[in-house]
Design a binder for these strands. Structure first.
Length: 105
DNA sequence: GCGGTGACGGTCG
DNA sequence: CCGACCGCCACCG
């Protein structure tokens, strides 16, 4: 996973801290990476990842606990990967952040 | 260098 | 609980 910039590297480092079975929001990752108000940048950085990347990109959701991928299919993959780790989606595609959001120590 | 473009987020009605 | 708006800011053509 190439780090095109120090910012991307910081983002990838932070995303890698999210443990299995938990999720984080774009804004949360941005803040933890030392880049407040750069939630969109987190989206860009993850979008730029290769398929073979070890970064758990699929553990990142938007502030409403929903999958933000707009592209066909990729959203289904993200949901499947999360469910495989025990993350539960409501009928409307919501994840209860109260229950599954990662709380850094 | 400029302007359109988002894997976003907080607010308001 | 929605949808609409608006502010944000690095990318890329």
């Amino acid at each position: 996973m190439p780090a095109r910039s120090p910012a991307y590297a910081a983002i990838y480092r932070t995303v890698r801290r999210v443990p299995r079975g938990r999720v984080a929001t774009y804004g949360q990752i941005a803040a933890l990476a030392g880049l407040p108000r750069h939630a969109r940048q987190v989206g860009y950085a993850l979008h730029a990842l290769s398929e073979t990347s070890t970064v758990p990109w699929y553990r990142i959701l938007n502030a409403q606990g929903m999958i933000s991928l707009t592209r066909e299919g990729s959203g289904d993959l993200q949901r499947k990967l999360l469910e495989l780790e025990g993350v539960v989606f409501s009928a409307r595609g919501h994840v209860d952040l109260k229950r599954f959001q990662w709380v850094p120590r």
